[in-house]
């Protein structure tokens, strides 16, 4: 289990991580979601003791990471698959890590097989690895000590679709066996498939968190019609806020029955009426992304 409490990290006047609290539970895959530069990597670096926090704590099963006697056996970490010595072979990198943890050499071969790196690939220098191969090597290094907790920063980056599927199954199995998995991504769809719990971060602050079901259920109703103007008029006349999604549908927090009745009274023919299923989450996420890409951040994200 990972417990993060009131974590803050500032750089000069800039709050990269701003009062972040969440828990990644055992037996669950927790998705840490946010646009680039939202503070995901900084939070993860603080968790594993690479970056000192300005205030707050991050604990692994109740203990600070730096106090674990041999952390590789408890926590598997992959922060950046490219952060390896380019002149070392994949096998050497695993051998050095295994030796540091005090593991037998055969563990290296087991892990190479587990991540499907061939002998020839393992003997190549990392300089000549594709990003996908580096990710596999990084996963192998993280799994080496058979830890109960995995902390992975954008592990699906650079993997092909089959690789992404493989990664998803691996993490699912890991959590099903009782492990704690925290993985970050800036892609909602990538994380939606595998995560049980979601923590959404933007501009250093947590903007939403809960089980995936909760977050998806809270997403409201999605309506389609050829008469969008008529529908929004009817909704606003009834005091119901609505917004138009990217593909021309109308999304509102009101439930489907209420929307259907209002549409009938206003004689607006509907072509689709259903629970939004994550459309709200996606919208919130897009808003976050758009905001972080604009110069001079504007207010308006619900905390």
């Amino acid at each position: 289990m990972i417990t993060v409490e009131n974590l803050t990290r500032t750089y000069g006047g800039f709050r990269a991580v701003d009062d972040v609290s969440f828990t990644a539970r055992a037996g669950r895959v927790t998705g840490f979601l946010g646009p680039n530069g939202a503070g995901k990597s900084t939070t993860m670096r603080i968790m594993v003791g690479l970056t000192p926090p300005t205030s707050g704590t991050a604990l692994i099963d109740g203990r600070p990471f730096a106090e674990l006697p041999n952390p590789g056996l408890d926590v598997g970490v992959l922060l950046d698959a490219s952060a390896q010595h380019a002149g070392r072979t994949g096998r050497e990198i695993l051998a050095v890590a295994a030796r540091t943890m005090g593991l037998p050499k055969m563990r290296v071969e087991e892990m190479l097989r587990r991540v499907s790196l061939t002998d020839a690939e393992a003997d190549r220098r990392v300089r000549n690895y594709s990003l996908g191969m580096r990710q596999r090597l990084g996963i192998a290094a993280a799994l080496l000590g058979d830890p109960a907790v995995l902390i992975l920063d954008e592990p699906a980056n650079g993997l092909d679709p089959a690789g992404i599927r493989w990664m998803r199954d691996l993490l699912r199995d890991y959590a099903d066996e009782g492990g704690t998995v925290l993985l970050s991504s800036h892609l909602l769809h990538e994380i939606e498939v595998v995560a049980d719990d979601l923590v959404v971060i933007g501009n250093g602050r947590i903007v939403a968190q809960g089980t995936k079901e909760e977050l998806l259920a809270a997403a409201g109703t999605l309506v389609r019609t050829r008469d969008v103007a008529g529908l929004t008029r009817a909704l606003s006349a009834a005091g119901i806020a609505s917004s138009i999604t990217g593909d021309g549908a109308v999304r509102t927090d009101a439930d489907a029955e209420q929307v259907g009745l209002l549409a009938m009274d206003a004689r607006v023919p509907l072509t689709e009426l259903r629970a939004a299923d994550g459309a709200g989450l996606e919208e919130m996420f897009l808003e976050l992304t758009a905001e972080s890409q604009r110069e001079g951040n504007t207010e308006g994200v619900a905390a």
């Binding site: 006697p69 041999n70 056996l73 009782g178 704690t180």
Partner: peptide, 18 residues
Amino acid sequence: DRPVSKARVRGLRSTETI
């Protein structure tokens, strides 16, 4: 409703420092 084998529910296991 998912079968949990509990293989990894075991807390921290590193005891000896490096």
